[in-house]
C-alpha cells in the first residue's frame, strides 16, 4: 500500500515537473467539481471525449451537459449510438441519421459511414475547447501517461482540442519505463495479427517548441494546457 502511495506521489511530482497540471481528487464529487470548475474558468462550451470508465463512473458527460457544455463522443460506435439515441438501429436508418448531420447523402455501407464519420470527427476535434481521455496507466519515473487504443480517436482528442484533460486511476501507476513495457506486452489489443494495440501513446508534460526565438518552451501544436485528474482509489 505504501508503495502505491509512493508511486502516486512520484508520478504527481514528475508530471508536474514536465509541465502538466495535476489534481488529485479523493472523491467522485471532488473530481466532478474540478472538471466543472475548469470548464467554467476556461469558458469551455464544447468537449470531445473518448471511452473512459472513470467518466462513466462520475457520470461526467451528463454533468457537463447540464453545465451547458456540449459533449461529443469520439469513438465512431459510441457517436453513432448517440445519434440513434442509444437504440439499436439498422444500417440504413443510421445512414439517414448521419446524412442529416453531415449535410451529404451517405449510402448505408460501413465504408461510406466510416469515411464520413472521420470527416465529421476531424472538425469536432479541431473545434473543441476540451478533449477528455482516460489513460490506462501512468509511469512514475517520468510522469508519463500511457494510453492504449485501436481506433485512434483518443490520441486525436488528446492532441487537437484547445485544452486536454486526462483522467487517471490513482492505483494504475507503473514505476518505470521497464515496468510499463511489461504491462503493455500483456495487452494484445484484440485485432487478429496484432501483437500490440494499434496505438500506444506516451504523453509527458505539455507540447513545446523552441523553434521560434524568444518563445522558449512555448506551446507548440497540441493543447495549450495539459490537465491530469487523478482519482484516488
Amino acid at each position: 500500500m505504501s508503495d502505491k502511495i509512493e508511486l502516486l506521489e512520484r508520478f504527481k511530482t514528475e508530471a508536474a515537473l514536465s509541465g502538466a497540471q495535476v489534481t488529485l481528487a479523493s472523491s467522485a464529487d471532488q473530481a466532478v467539481d474540478f472538471v466543472l470548475g475548469l470548464v467554467k474558468d476556461k469558458g469551455i462550451t464544447t468537449a470531445v471525449k473518448s471511452a473512459s470508465p472513470i467518466a462513466e463512473r462520475l457520470d461526467l458527460a451528463a454533468r457537463l451537459t447540464k453545465a451547458g457544455v456540449k459533449v461529443m463522443e469520439t469513438s465512431i460506435a459510441q457517436w453513432a449510438a448517440g445519434l440513434a439515441r442509444g437504440k439499436d438501429v439498422p444500417m440504413d436508418k443510421l445512414a439517414e441519421l448521419i446524412s442529416a448531420v453531415s449535410g451529404e447523402k451517405v449510402p448505408p455501407e460501413p465504408e461510406a459511414i466510416l469515411r464520413v464519420a472521420r470527416r465529421i470527427m476531424k472538425d469536432m476535434y479541431a473545434g473543441a475547447g476540451l478533449g477528455i481521455t482516460e489513460a490506462d496507466f501512468g509511469i512514475a519515473e517520468t510522469g508519463t501517461l500511457v494510453t492504449l487504443e485501436n481506433e485512434g480517436n483518443a490520441r486525436l482528442a488528446a492532441a487537437l482540442p484547445r485544452l486536454h484533460l486526462t483522467l487517471l486511476d490513482g492505483t494504475h501507476i507503473a514505476s518505470s519505463l521497464a515496468d510499463a513495457a511489461e504491462l503493455i506486452k500483456g495487452s494484445s489489443g484484440g485485432i487478429p495479427g496484432h501483437k500490440l494495440p494499434t496505438f500506444i501513446t506516451y504523453l509527458t508534460g505539455r507540447n513545446t517548441t523552441a523553434d521560434i526565438p524568444g518563445a522558449i518552451f512555448a506551446r507548440a501544436q497540441g493543447p495549450a494546457e495539459e490537465y491530469i485528474l487523478i482519482l484516488k482509489a
Binding site: E14, S18, T74, S75, I76, A77, Q78, A80, D88, V89, P90, M91, K93, L94, P110, E111, I113, L114, R118, M121, E141, T142, G143, T144, E149, N150, E151, G152, N153, R155, L156, A159, G189, I191, G193, H194, K195, L196, P197, T198, F199, I200, T201, Y202, L203, T204, G205, R206, N207, T208, G222
Partner: peptide, 29 residues
C-alpha cells in the same frame, strides 16, 4: 527533458468498434 512529449508506438492499422451490428474495417488512424 526526461521524455519527449509525445511518444507514439504504432502497430499496423487500427480499427473502430461495430455499428448497427457490423464491425467497421478500420478506425480513425
Amino acid at each position: 527533458t526526461k521524455m519527449t512529449v509525445y511518444t507514439s508506438f504504432i502497430t499496423g492499422t487500427g480499427r473502430a468498434g461495430a455499428i448497427s451490428g457490423t464491425q467497421l474495417s478500420g478506425g480513425q488512424g
